[in-house]
Simulated assay, not measured.
Amino acid sequence: MRIGSRRSTLALTQTGLIADRLRTLGHQVEIVEIVTEGDTNRASLSQLGGTGIFATAIRNALHDGRIDLTVHSLKDLPTAPADGLTVAAIPQREDPRDVLVARDGLTLGELPVDSVVGTGAPRRAAQLAALGLGLRTRDIRGNVDSRVELVRRGVVDAVVLARAGMSRLGRLDEVTEVIDPLQVLPAPGQGALALEIRTADTQLHEALHVLDHPDTRAAVTAERAVLARLEAGCAAPLGALAEISEDLDGRLEVSLRAFVGRLDGSFELRRSMTGPLDKAERIGHDLAQQLLDDGALEAFAPSDHPPEPPPGGHLPTDANPVTDIHHQRRGA
């Protein structure tokens, strides 16, 4: 099997984990490194359009027959199906929560007012602003090393990252707080990997089926259904998390929570819904519709509090290109 992977350390680590499992099952595996637009274009994710920038080049390699399989971070995979391609397996996911890496071992609640938190995700920025802690967010790009280095150099006071990535890289000892989803919901599909192949490769599909984790697939299906429904308009900061549990009769059910809001924290909606495991996609669509019915389109409206110029200008030229957004307390 030729497995396509981005060249980042995290991507290669994730691909290596799947490759090792396949080798244990008796398969011969080769990892093929592929450069994507998200690796070469250092503009803000919001400017690049977000979804697809990490997946397109790898999907093209699948279509062209240069690789047989690819391992995506599911949160980076567009919700629209790709012609001729199938997600053959979604292994059991890592803890999907976000984490904080902050100076002096601080937590979110301990960061002083006007502390600068680096993140490339509008979802995180909007939820941090909605907490009303008086934090400022700075739009950053780059791998885990470069982001954590910004904290070490004092360029920012903290960065927010995915716990799953830190775990896979063996760097959980650098985490100063695992952020409660009640404060910041993760991205739909965060912590999960998607093994994508050509639809026609039925033999390969069978071989990968053993890696599929049904509960994880149901959870991320519900989360991504919310995303798919709300992407019908302009992309808004969105977080979603589904958890699988048993009801009083011992039947499995999906409990889904979602957030949508403005970058400046002036508007937010948080809603939840629960239903049968086999209705995961429907639950996601229904929750998205509830968000829309309750005014989610307000998240797309122009902010009453436009971004202020960044204090001190941009990051140094040897760091990632950035755009700064000054988030104020709600109602300020």
Rank of each mutant, 00 (worst) to 15 (best):
E149H: 05
A225C: 04
G49Y: 11
L77P: 04
T202G: 11
A130E: 10
R251L: 13
V260Y: 10
L131Y: 14
R282I: 10
P276K: 03
D201F: 08
D39L: 09
R217K: 00
G105Q: 02
R147W: 04
L227F: 07
V87C: 03
L297E: 15
R23L: 07
S266P: 06
P91N: 06
A187P: 01
R136P: 14
H72C: 01
A55Q: 08
R171Q: 13
L182S: 14
S8K: 13
L291P: 04
F259E: 00
D324S: 13
R103A: 15
A299T: 14
A228K: 09
R229W: 04
A207L: 10
R59V: 11
D215F: 06
H209N: 11
L269Q: 07
T13Y: 10
L85G: 04
E177L: 11
R262I: 11
E281N: 03
G312L: 11
Q183E: 12
P81H: 00
G331D: 05
Q127K: 09
G261E: 01
A288P: 03
V99E: 05
T36E: 01
D249M: 11
H285F: 09
V113W: 09
A158L: 11
G233L: 11
G154L: 06
G265A: 07
M166K: 09
Q183C: 06
A129L: 11
E223M: 05
P96N: 11
A218Q: 07
G295W: 12
T199G: 00
E281Y: 02
S245H: 07
L169N: 01
P112D: 06
V322G: 08
L269V: 07
A55T: 15
Q47K: 13
R152I: 15
R224A: 03
G331K: 02
L161T: 02
D304T: 13
L287N: 09
E253W: 10
H326K: 05
G49A: 12
G120Q: 02
A130T: 14
T107G: 09
T119R: 07
D201A: 14
